[in-house]
Design a protein around this nucleic acid. Structure first.
Lengths: 368, 368
DNA sequence: CTGTTAGCGCTTTCAC
DNA sequence: GTGAAAGCGCTAACAG
């Protein structure tokens, strides 16, 4: 009964809201001056006003300044941008397509740093940034008015990939590839080879905490499950690197020593950290595919009184601020995330067609 | 000579880029189907196609489905969004105006969490999120096509405030106020009173590390400098809370025990942390206006071998994940940042006109 | 250097 | 239930 009432009142609220909103919009329409209004008031043609704002070479300096001043006086801010978008066919808006929800991705420090680099370049070029979820149904919602796409990570809705490939605006991908489209990547395999190589010793018990290695929504060991290939191939490149390095010191890492995590969040990471640390034999080394995971392992080890690095060595991946700030500091691969963002934005804005590999740096911390 | 050559080639690059871009845009125009094309092909009027997509009640179910199918077949994705924006007068885009550069703000965990909440609600309502810098010259760049603004923190370019007040689209502010415009706030003063009250003892030496308390670009003590009032009044409310609480236990905190930091970043925070910890008398308690600052103090204390909380108690503000994850964990005020984001988005989308105070929660950690 | 005018692609009355 | 036509506000080609 109460539930029903709630629903009903919500329903009415929505109607009222819509009516109200409609009125509000009507009001707006009435009050914003148009080029035509101004042209009438100043006694010149609309073209002249338009030129005063957009093409200084089309009229005398004197007249231009005069017009601009008059416009300011009567409160005309310039040509309507919505109309400009339609007419000119571009908007100065760049869509950044994220791999997942905006709300998930924005709290991820790696993604944030990427965004930082990308938006910095976009801002220099006077472009606006529109965030777009990788779990959206389609790209058509914004494809008509953005000037291009930066696609950060394979979107969890795979359909978006082919939509991006089939539409006409320029696209740059990051951390994954679409045929014939420029991309920005890091050499994950080599990086992971290096960090594992520098950490592992012959007699080590090793565990790997990976990201989306198999198609599972929960944290678990991968055993011999089929690997999830398309979406998160960077995880597999990393895995390849770890395993290859282990092989060089005579260790072989089996599927029961490899965990997969569905999302790069503390919650999932702490589950995996707990499983790994309470498994027998207890690992001497835990190779983590993200700093966030490594930090959870570190925290848990502290809580359990396991000494790092004496009894347990931990490596991360990403190089987020917290990994450097925490004590003991983390051994990790510092991806130039901001650089990736910059590279992506530059590639898009300059219309480059070549892909780029961005450098990384291994930081040896106190955790190994 | 080399420099000149560089410049020149950059210049040419730009021209080539522009030509290329222009061509690219031309190409696009040609290839996207329009309502008219489709109407011709299907032998109906443009209105009917439009109705099939937007107003199901205007034509028979059968015809509608038929048209939609045909459209899919010939690859027509639906009416052009840019034209819709102009015609309908709204775009489903909400501008989020940040207090500073996008690139600065996005790496701030507090802001990220806010964004998480806000974008979640926007997504539910099928709205898109456009990020906008608080250091932009004006709002007019996007005011014509966004449906409204969420303004997170007082923009560092104050001019934006009056522009927002004077334009016609709905606005909601967060963490600051504009007359007659609904806002979302936290009771900073009470929160800081509580945390200080529960931490301070009669004989304590106290230091405060604040944010933008005075108009200074560097980290320094405030002494008796005039307080920066408009922009960052939340900082002053927090200060008021601390000082009031101190008074109740008989402590008076002077300007030479209060530091100000220009931006909430590790870099600035670590400067202040260092100054405070090396000052004489060394503080027993450091009250920090953000968790980021508190974490830097914590790190430095560890490096210096100062025991927390025995020799030094530290409080933060915000409740970011890292503050809970770090060891010892931080005593702090958990702002419901995601809630703030949600509240802001809801207030905007429902056209509410009342301001809202969002709750907070004090978390006693191991640092006090 | 300035003004006239034809659309950009769409939605929405208004006749039929 | 359907189609013709006006016009959202602007820009750019063109004529003067």
């Amino acid at each position: 009964m109460g539930e029903k009432y709630k629903r009903l009142s919500y329903y009415y609220l929505c109607i009222i809201f819509k009516l109200y909103n409609h009125q509000r919009l009507e009001l707006m329409k009435k009050t914003r001056l148009t080029l035509k209004d101004v042209a009438n008031q100043l006694g010149v043609s609309t073209a002249t006003i338009s030129n005063a704002f957009n093409r200084p070479d089309q009229l005398s300096k004197k007249k231009r300044i005069e017009i601009l001043e008059q416009c300011k006086r009567i409160g005309f801010e310039g040509p309507n941008k919505a109309a400009q978008i339609l007419r000119k066919g571009h908007s100065n808006i760049i869509g950044i397509v994220l791999s997942d929800n905006i709300d998930y991705i924005i709290s991820d420090p790696v993604a944030s740093t990427f965004m930082k680099g990308a938006t910095e370049v976009l801002r220099e070029h006077k472009k606006h940034t529109l965030l777009y979820s990788g779990d959206s149904e389609n790209i058509g919602d914004i494809a008509d008015f953005v000037d291009g796409f930066i696609c950060y990570g394979a979107p969890i809705n795979q359909a978006l990939v082919s939509e991006l490939a089939n539409q006409l605006k320029p696209v740059v991908t990051v951390d994954f590839d679409i045929e014939n489209i420029p991309s920005i990547n890091v050499d994950n395999e080599t990086a992971c080879f290096e960090i594992a190589k520098s950490t592992l010793k012959e007699s080590d018990q090793v565990a790997i905490l990976g990201l989306r290695l198999i198609d599972s929504k929960s944290t678990c060991r991968i055993y011999d499950s089929p690997l999830l290939d398309f979406e998160h191939s960077i995880s597999h490149r990393r895995l390849d690197g770890y395993i290859a390095a282990a092989k060089t010191v005579g260790i072989s890492i089996e599927g029961d020593r490899i965990w997969t995590i569905a999302k790069n969040t503390s919650k999932y990471a702490s589950q995996a950290a707990n499983e790994a640390l309470t498994s027998i034999p207890r690992p001497d080394v835990i190779l983590c595919m993200s700093d966030l995971i490594a930090l959870e392992v570190l925290k848990l080890a502290k809580d359990k009184g396991i000494k790092v690095p004496e009894e347990l060595r931990i490596t991360g991946f990403d190089g987020i601020d917290e990994a450097l700030r925490t004590r003991p500091s983390l051994t990790t691969i510092c991806q130039a995330n901001a650089e990736k963002g910059k590279a992506a934005a530059e590639t898009l804005l300059l219309g480059l067609t070549t892909s780029r590999l961005v450098s990384y740096e291994m930081k040896i911390g106190e955790s190994t």
